[in-house]
C-alpha cells in the first residue's frame, strides 16, 4: 500500500510540474526565453533532430561513464588506501579537498590544452566525480560496527583480513551510494568539459543553441543533460538498494 501511494505522489508531482511549466510558457510569465514544455518536447522529439540528439547523448554519456569510472574509481581507491594506512588520512583528506576546491570552469580550458578537445570532457567529469565519491567512500569504509571490530580483534584478525572480510563488505552499500552521488556530477562535468571546444555532445548543443539564440533547442539540450544525470542517479539508486539488502 505504501509503495503505490509514493509512486502515485511522485507521478502527481511530475504532472503538476509539467502543467506549471506549460502554463508559465504559454502565458509568457518569464517572457519568450521560457518556452512552454510542449514546444521543448516538439524540438526534442522532432524526427529530423534525432540523429543530432542521439550523437550528443552518446558523446556526453560516454564521457560521463568514463569520467565516473576514472574519478569515482580513484575516489574509492584513495579512500581504501586512507582506510588501510591510517597515517595517510590527514594528507589524503587535504588532497581531496584541494581537488574539490579547483573550479571546474577554470580548469577546463587548461585540460583542453593538456589533453585535447576529445578528452577534456572525460577529465572534467573525472574531477567532478572524484570528490563526492571520495567523501562517501571514506564514510562507507567506517560503516562496520564497533561490535564487529571488537569481534575481529578478539579473534586475532590481521589488518588485511579486517579490511577484506569486514570493512570492504560493510562498505558496499556506502560505495554504491558514493557512485550514486558522483554520477550526476560526472554528467554535469562532461557537459561543462564540452563547452570548451568538444567536437560533439550535449554541452556543445547547449553552447551552440545559446549562441544561435535557439531557445527551444537550448531548453531541450538542458533537459537532455538533466535526464542523463537523473538516469545515472536512478541506476545507482537501484544498485545501492540491492547492495543494502545484501550487505546490511
Amino acid at each position: 500500500m505504501k509503495r503505490p501511494t509514493r509512486t502515485l505522489q511522485m507521478a502527481l508531482g511530475m504532472v503538476a510540474l509539467c502543467v506549471a511549466w506549460e502554463l508559465i510558457g504559454r502565458l509568457q510569465v518569464f517572457g519568450p526565453t521560457f518556452p512552454p514544455l510542449s514546444t521543448v518536447f516538439g524540438v526534442l522529439f522532432s524526427p529530423d533532430r534525432q540523429r543530432l540528439f542521439s550523437s550528443a547523448i552518446g558523446a556526453t554519456g560516454t564521457s560521463a561513464v568514463l569520467g565516473l569510472t576514472i574519478g569515482g574509481g580513484i575516489g574509492i581507491l584513495i579512500a581504501a588506501m586512507r582506510q588501510a594506512i591510517t597515517a595517510t588520512r590527514p594528507g589524503l583528506d587535504r588532497f581531496a579537498a584541494a581537488i574539490h576546491a579547483i573550479p571546474q570552469i577554470g580548469i577546463a580550458p587548461v585540460l583542453i590544452v593538456l589533453l585535447g578537445r576529445d578528452n577534456a570532457p572525460i577529465a572534467v567529469a573525472s574531477i567532478a566525480a572524484f570528490f563526492p565519491s571520495y567523501a562517501a567512500a571514506t564514510r562507507a569504509f567506517d560503516a562496520a560496527l564497533t561490535a564487529h571490530h571488537d569481534l575481529f580483534t578478539v579473534l586475532g584478525s590481521r589488518r588485511s583480513n579486517r579490511l577484506l572480510m569486514l570493512e570492504l563488505p560493510a562498505a558496499v552499500p556506502g560505495l554504491a551510494d558514493a557512485l550514486r552521488l558522483a554520477a550526476p556530477g560526472a554528467v554535469l562535468g562532461a557537459v561543462l568539459g564540452e563547452w570548451f571546444g568538444a567536437p560533439r555532445g550535449v554541452g556543445l548543443l547547449i553552447l551552440s543553441s545559446s549562441q544561435a539564440y535557439d531557445i527551444p533547442l537550448l531548453w531541450a539540450s538542458a533537459l537532455l543533460a538533466t535526464v542523463l544525470a537523473m538516469v545515472g542517479f536512478g541506476f545507482f539508486t537501484i544498485l545501492q538498494r540491492a547492495a543494502a539488502r545484501r550487505f546490511a
Partner: peptide, 26 residues
C-alpha cells in the same frame, strides 16, 4: 579466546555456517 557480545555481532552478509567459520578464516 572465544567471545560472545551483547549484540550478536554476526556479519549480515554471511550465512550461519559462514559466520560460525569466521574464527577459522581469521
Amino acid at each position: 579466546l572465544g567471545f560472545a557480545f551483547q549484540e550478536h555481532a554476526l556479519l549480515p552478509w554471511a550465512t550461519v555456517s559462514e559466520n560460525i567459520a569466521i574464527p577459522f578464516r581469521l
